[in-house]
Each structure stands twice: as C-alpha cells, then as structure tokens.
C-alpha cells in the first residue's frame, strides 16, 4: 500500500511539469504586455523596455521557462506577483482557506442531500418521490450557477433580508454561496447514487441477504449501500477537486475573496507568475484529491485493496485508475 502511494506521488511529477509547461506556453503566447499594464499608459517606451528586461520578459521562451522551472524545483519559488509584489505562494496561501471552506461546505451539503435522496429514489423506483427527485436533480444540474446565486440573493437578501448578499465574514455569509455551489454537485451525486443503488439491489447477493431473513432496512443500508458507494465516492471526489480550484462565477457573484476570483483578476492583469502558480497549485490539489479517492476505494472495496497489495508483490501495475 505504501509503495503504491509512493508510486503515485512519483507519477505526479511528470503531470505537474506538463501542466506548468502548457500554462507557461499559453501565457507566453497570449497578446498583451504585462510591463505596459503595470506601468500604465503614461509610461515612456524606454521605461517599459527596461522593465521588461528586469522581469526577464525579453529572454527567449525556453530560457524563460528554464528559469521558471529552476526556481520552482530548486527553491520552491513560484515567483512574485506583478500586481502586489508579494510572493505568489503567499498570495495563494492567503486565498486558499476561503476557497477550501466554501468547497468543503458545498460538498458536505451536496453529499448530505444527494446520497439519502438517491437511496430513497432507488428503493422506491418510479414512485412520486423518485420522479420529483429526478426532475429536481435535472433542474439542479442544468441551472447556471451565477443565475442561481443572483436569484438566491434577490429572495433571501433583498426580499426577505435574512442573509447577507456579499462578502465572506462568518457563518451567515457562507450559506447562500454554499447552496449555490452545492446544488449541481448534490444533483450529480443524487443521480449517481440512484443509478448505482438500482444496479446493486438487483444483484444476487441482495437476494441472499433477504433469504437470510435480514430486515429490508439492513439489506439496503448495509448490503446494498456499501457496494453502491464506490462510484459515488468518485463523483464526490471529482466535485471536491473542481470546487477546490475555486468556484469562479459564484465567488464573483458573492464577492468572495477566493482562489477563483484571484485567478480571474490575475488573468485580466497579465499577472503571469500568479496565473502559472495558481494553475500549478490547483493541479497539485487535484492530483492529491484523486489519490485520496483511489485510496478510499481500498477501504470500501476489499477487491481493490488486494489489487494494490498484489502490485507490491509482482511489481507490476495491476490497476490503472
């Protein structure tokens, strides 16, 4: 198991180098001059040129990328933000807790609604509950985030005055953004739980459990759910990974100082180091969430656990996730 984790960690390196290269290249070829944006329209041409030299923007592409990679790998340095002059790492570390809090609350909300509703819908297939749930989940998936956020603000902040409309200062401020971000995840999780449960409750081993005289509640909650959870974990993990990258639109609607808003602002300002560092950070988070999900499988499904173990014996990669 430990060897498997190490292997996965080593495999992240080429992935991250690839990500950094793609982002670096994209930023290099986008039109616009960061030196000009920073110095403003009134700056003289030779001042801008000198500043470009200072930033290293006049170096050849490969040299620039090489320097970036050198600083990154040797010093762990992501560079300094053009707009604030602070290290990129510091900027990200400042913003990330907000994004993490929002993501955690949204996914918690989504799982607490999506999984139970999915289970009930599957056990009462084609009932009124199932039909209503399925329709609501379709609405939840297809409703645009920013629109839902605005509607929630109009109802709960403007009309009822119950909850604040913007900022992120305390629990009351968290509710509307968490609902906005969580809705589509809840809908996806519900649909996945439902279809996974429907498949499992037709399996022979569910009939075996019933033939033992086990109660219907235990048959569903113990025998069926433990098998049906595996694809649900995947969906929850992927949703969490995406949310940790920052809910760009929702953060804008509610003026939340999260990672998503930071990225959008940095792209507008041609803040190369900030964008590159941010994307790299999100990629790292995503890789780790993925690894965590794969490890979680092993705890839910003993077959996967023994596959991880057998890889250690044979030294071959038996599972490809």
């Amino acid at each position: 198991m430990l060897k498997y984790i190490l292997k996965r960690l080593v495999m992240m390196i080429p992935v991250l180098i690839g990500v950094s290269f793609v982002v670096f290249t994209m930023m290099y070829f986008t039109p616009g001059d960061p030196a000009r944006i920073i110095l403003g329209e009134s700056a003289k041409e030779h001042e801008v040129e000198a500043f470009r030299d200072e930033l290293g923007l006049n170096d050849p592409f490969l040299l620039q990328y090489g320097n970036y990679l050198k600083n990154l790998t040797l010093k762990g340095d992501l560079g300094t933000s053009y707009s604030t002059g602070k290290p990129v790492t510091e900027e990200i570390v400042n913003r990330f807790p907000t994004t993490m809090l929002l993501a955690a609350m949204s996914i918690l909300l989504a799982a607490l609604i999506g999984i139970p509703v999915g289970i009930i819908a599957a056990t009462k297939q084609y009932s009124v509950f199932d039909n209503v749930g399925t329709i609501l989940s379709l609405v939840g998936v297809s409703m645009p985030n920013f629109w839902q956020g605005l509607v929630l603000i109009i109802i709960f902040s403007v009309m009822l005055g119950w909850l604040p409309a913007s900022g992120f200062y305390g629990p009351l401020y968290w509710i509307l953004p968490a609902i906005t971000v969580g809705t589509s995840s809840a809908a996806t999780i519900m649909r996945m739980t439902r279809s996974s449960m429907l498949e499992v409750i037709r399996q022979d081993y569910i009939r075996t459990a019933r033939a033992k005289g086990q109660s219907e509640k235990k048959v569903i909650m113990k025998h069926a759910l433990s098998n049906a959870l595996i694809p649900v974990i995947t969906v929850v993990g992927l949703s969490l990974g995406i949310l940790l990258g920052g809910a760009v639109l929702t953060e804008s609607v509610f003026s939340i100082p999260g990672l998503g808003k930071l990225m959008i602002d940095s792209i507008k300002q041609k803040n190369y180091p900030m964008v590159q560092g941010g994307v790299l950070f999100i990629a790292i988070i995503f890789c780790f969430i993925n690894l965590a999900v794969d490890l979680l499988y092993a705890f839910v499904d003993p077959r996967i656990k023994s596959q991880y173990k057998s890889m250690r014996k044979t030294g071959k990669r038996a599972v490809k996730m």
């Binding site: 022979d204 499904d301 077959r303």
Partner: peptide, 10 residues
C-alpha cells in the same frame, strides 16, 4: 450462481 451470490465487500 455462487460467483454472484456473496456480497463482495464483507
């Protein structure tokens, strides 16, 4: 069918 009649996770 013994292959499918046992719960794989217990």
């Amino acid at each position: 069918d013994p292959m499918t009649s046992l719960n794989p996770v217990f």
